[in-house]
Amino acid sequence: MKPAPFTYHAPALLEDALAILGDTAQDDGRVLAGGQSLVPMMALRLAQPAHLVDIGRIDGLGDLIEDSAGLTIGALVRHQRFHAPVVEGVLGRLLRYVSSHIAHLPIRLRGTFCGSLANADPASEWCLVAATLNARMTARRRGETRVIAAADFFDGVMATALSPDEILTGVQIPHPLPGTKVGFYEFSRRAGDFALAMSLVSYRIEGGVVTDPRIGLGGVEEYPRRIAQAEEIVAGQPLESDVLERTAEATAAAIAPLVDHHTSAAYRRDLARIAVLRAFARAAQGEPADG
């Protein structure tokens, strides 16, 4: 239960971190941010990086920046930061509510938003938020910066489009348009435990019908994503129970659930269906949550 040996690097500048990572990525060099997923994996020897590049002492990575394009979340912004709404309106309330589902206070005080995305656990709440709200990921490597759309970012269980020498330096969530309603629902067996299914939905009502619906599903498949087949059903329809039932059933039909010793595919499909219905119910109440 002790991590394997590694060489520790704690650069003060992002450029230095990128250079060290560039030199050590081939040798399984890894970024250490909050460490709340990587360190347990190292303790269990599931991860044995030869080099750790600790970005915790780099100034500026803990910034939250709101501008006309959206909210940009820096690489060292920790989960607990969202406990008080970081932006006005529905986005700040949503992020606050979602953050309360992440593990427990000591974990939330250390773990980072961007670290969750880079780690890409199927049950990560932030990955679902990023996928559903079309976040834009900024990835940097030595001499190169690129922006990756959420739809292109997740690639499998704990797999992303990031290359080993890249650091996810920031994630931008676009501002929801005025009138946007959002709802989030998560099912897990214990408080703070991994989600078995969760859904985030957002939409607007224009002319009495659902406009720009987004139906995100997480914790069920290899990675969270929007379910286009379900969005097509609810788009342009009034928000009525039979429409929502068909939307939820289309979600369950469209997915390839993860299975394990405790959960069958049929069980996870049913959880997915319920999660979508409850997320819509919460959105219709005008708040991300009833809590």
Binding site: A10, L32, P40, L105, P106, I107, R110
Partner: peptide
Amino acid sequence: GDPVRSCLMFAVQ
């Protein structure tokens, strides 16, 4: 001042 899990930090941090 923050309560944290000391098994999830390296001493060097």
